[in-house]
Nucleic acid binder design. Structure first.
Length: 216
DNA sequence: GTCAAGATTAGT
DNA sequence: CTAATCTTGACG
């Protein structure tokens, strides 16, 4: 079993970490079972300048884990219905995070299906709310340290063969900056990318990302 | 205390 | 297009 991605991986700008997360594996340990999926879609959220970020107006009880050390989870409830999973990045205190928007299911698919009691026959992890339901992620995991290799963590995955697309983020409000920057990243043509209208817009290709925590 | 709005989803 | 469902954060 590979080691979890180390703290140093997360100690960078959300704009660097977000595309590098694509292709890596999100692992959830649940009642002795291993649930895992390959990350295929993410969005970067910054602090300060980013009007769409929960960190925009500073720390509050709800978002305080965003301002904690990198490599921890920030989990929140949206619309009173669904949970969303973020990975805290950057220097402590900045409030940067990356929203995990979609996975390709790899392990524990039957348990994921059972967790999605509302729609077990539909796609399991092609949206931020759906993947949290499939992996049984809720606010109890808010602030969880992803570098421990317990309960919830990330493992290095093979370099994606697919090109990386970048485009505007989904469902956000805010000013021109928040609406128009290409801070959403996904694997081109992957069937488990969330059903967002932007999927058909022109695709800005990003560099081939060195996924591995390579040191020179 | 009151209240509008929300980084979504499934169903009409 | 809209309901579901509830916590947060702003205001007083």
């Amino acid at each position: 079993m590979p080691d979890p991605l180390p703290r140093a991986f997360y100690t960078r700008s959300a704009l660097e970490v977000a595309p590098d997360l694509l292709g890596n594996i999100l692992v959830r340990e649940l009642d002795g079972h291993r649930l895992a999926g390959r990350i295929v879609e993410v969005e970067a959220y910054l602090g300060g300048e980013d009007a769409a970020s929960h960190a925009f107006r500073g720390p509050t009880p709800r978002n305080r884990s965003m301002f904690g050390p990198p490599g921890h989870a920030y989990v929140y409830l949206i619309y009173g219905v669904h949970h969303c999973l973020n990975i805290v990045t950057g220097p402590e205190g900045d409030g940067q995070a990356v929203l995990i928007r979609a996975l390709e299911p790899l392990e524990g698919v039957e348990l994921m299906r059972a967790n999605r009691r509302e729609a077990p026959d539909r796609q399991l992890t092609n949206g931020p709310g759906k993947l949290c339901q499939a992996l049984a992620i809720d606010r109890r995991l808010d602030g969880h340290d992803l570098c421990l290799g317990e309960t919830l963590w990330l493992e290095p995955g093979p370099q994606p063969g697919e090109p990386i697309c970048a485009g505007p983020r989904v469902g956000v409000r805010g000013d021109d900056l928040a609406l128009n920057r290409a801070w959403r990243f996904y694997l081109k043509g992957h069937p488990d990318v969330s059903p967002a209208p932007q999927n058909r817009l022109p695709c800005t290709l990003t560099r081939p990302t060195p996924n591995e925590t390579s040191h020179d």
